[in-house]
Design a protein around this nucleic acid. Structure first.
Lengths: 337, 337
DNA sequence: TTGTATGCGTTATCAC
DNA sequence: GTGATAACGCATACAA
């Protein structure tokens, strides 16, 4: 039953014209007789001819494919980013291949390799927490593949990138706590080597200092940004030592919920006695009780900017000056502060 | 700065051998001298040569690409499924293009079209809630493209499929409630046209009936499966009319949490007075308080089975007998029951 | 064991 | 306006 799909060759033969003419007719070239063009189109219709996109891509050295490398898919924030990117790409008739790295540098390197093999037209990448050295990005770039970093970026690469205004956001969050009259504000901070988390810490610190409050190292503890239970236990310990704490700024929503639970266990009133602010505006944050005050990172804007930058990279083969775009954030005030 | 990527031609030239030899060396043919093979491999290493997958694919009429069509990415369950599928495909050096449909039939049809254009080697699809008629699937299949349905399947298509044992799972959940001594069990059911939700309702009903309890239509209300607030309001109303309700089986975790909140608002003790059971084992379910009893759908097994089925479809061009695989579920008993 | 030649389906450069 | 023809990068049948 499988009549092999017709090609322009078949069409040409049946019409007694050349493949060149058929190709031109198909692609709206001006130098083709109206009559012949009509004949071609008619036969195309009749045979239900579909041009072989793969051959076109091969010939044109494109793939109508971009790669999206990110730490995780099963993750509230990254999955939104993925949906957004796919949405933008769709408008350009570009499909997207997603490569999760699970915060693993080796997987990240392999992902790039796979994408290069697949001949993607460009790559959007959000770095794993393990990634210090961006040489794999630079090499990819040197191969002439457009690549832009987003969300989790490296400071050491000469590429276009877009990320969150983490420091500003953290500052805003802590300032809000200070406005509420809080004076002993703890910070659940993330891994020291992740720029985003470092910036959030920096924003915290600068808000404290600018308000002429005392910056107290003992109020800052490091936690796993993805572990509710870990944050809960860590904060439980901290709060025991420092029951004077009257607010918590957590580096992620999930750790903020950990703090919330610790507080609940101690029958502490939130926000009356202790306020809590998270980061990222996960769905979770509006589901817990009390509803969590948090920072919205505007994933829509981030995806939009990243995709726009990638497109620019894909069209201008000559590189413009690289830029770093920082996405604005919004403080979402809810019940926990 | 973009040194054009080396091809096997370059390698051949620099080594003074033919492209055929390089190709053979690269592809593990036996009829190639160990020495020359070593030389080829060495140069490949040195030049950091990556074979042009696109050319290979074009030549072999494959794409090393599969399509994954699903209702959403920003969704706890589907995002796990996506990660799993990508993991399995990766082992076969296959990349996956993800197409979210946002529960929209038109988008689903477009997604298939895009994937066909992209020449994917196969398609895994989980249907949108809007999809009644699977003609687009059937047409895709007729074009010779391997396609298998998973999770959200259609009863009307002659394709391989894998889904959850929804009815059995629901039965198990309700049976558990009955074992706890509950007698007036409400059911928050999903849309009538979605097979999975219908099956869950059927499981609920049959557990009730087999236990010789009275099946009471008034205890079953229909809600939006994704709306916490909707479920909360709906259950609030129901509970007002029927304060004798002593348990709730909700069609999803998020609606179960809605019920939980409604109960909290009425100061009802969970599970002492009313037990609650959800469905899907979302991360959310272990984060709320009390922690939610729920059904784990084993997304790992589902993805594995679906991918295996797709692979079979991709290798055997001659179709074996189509099958429907139903994935087992686990009841996860936590604090809410 | 190695090389030659052909083709996959299309576009694009020239001639005519 | 139209048509040869040469690529694109690789795999493979066949010859050497």
């Amino acid at each position: 039953m499988s009549t092999t799909k017709p090609t322009i060759k078949d069409i040409a033969k049946r019409l007694g014209v050349s493949v060149a003419t058929v190709s031109k007719a198909l692609n709206g070239y001006s130098d083709v007789n109206k009559q012949t063009k009509a004949r071609v189109l008619a036969l195309v219709e009749k045979l239900n001819f579909i041009p072989n996109q793969q051959a076109i891509n091969f010939r044109k050295k494109s793939s109508s494919l971009i790669g999206l490398v990110l730490p995780q898919i099963n993750h509230f924030y990254f999955s939104i980013l993925a949906e957004q990117v796919i949405g933008f790409a769709e408008k350009d008739n570009i499909n997207v291949v997603i490569k999760p790295t699970f915060e693993n540098l080796k997987k990240e390197i392999m992902a790039l390799k796979d994408l290069i093999k697949q001949n993607v037209d460009g790559i959007l990448i959000s770095l794993s927490n393990e990634t210090r050295n961006p040489t794999h990005l630079i090499e990819t770039h040197k191969m002439g593949i457009p690549i832009v970093e987003f969300d989790r970026i490296s400071k050491l690469s000469p590429l276009d990138k877009v990320t969150t205004r983490d420091k500003e956001a953290a500052y805003k969050a802590v300032q809000h706590l200070i406005d509420r009259g809080k004076k002993t504000i703890a910070h659940l901070r993330g891994p020291l080597l992740s720029q985003n988390f470092v910036d959030r810490f920096l924003g915290y610190k600068s808000a404290i200092e600018e308000a002429k409050l005392i910056y107290d190292e003992a109020l800052v503890i490091q936690i796993q940004p993805n572990s509710l239970e870990g944050a809960k236990q860590a904060f439980l310990k901290l709060f025991k030592k420092r029951p004077d704490i009257d607010a918590v700024f957590a580096v992620t929503d999930i750790t903020a919920v950990g703090a919330l639970e610790a507080l609940k266990e101690n029958a502490v009133k939130v926000p009356a006695q202790v306020s809590v602010v998270g980061f990222s505006n996960w769905q979770l944050s509006s589901l817990v009780s009390p509803k969590l005050t948090t920072i919205d990172q505007n994933p829509y804007l981030m995806a939009k900017a990243a995709y726009a930058l990638l497109k620019r990279n894909m069209s201008n083969k000559e590189s413009d000056a690289k830029q770093v775009i920082r996405i604005k954030t919004d403080l979402i005030i809810r019940e926990s502060s």
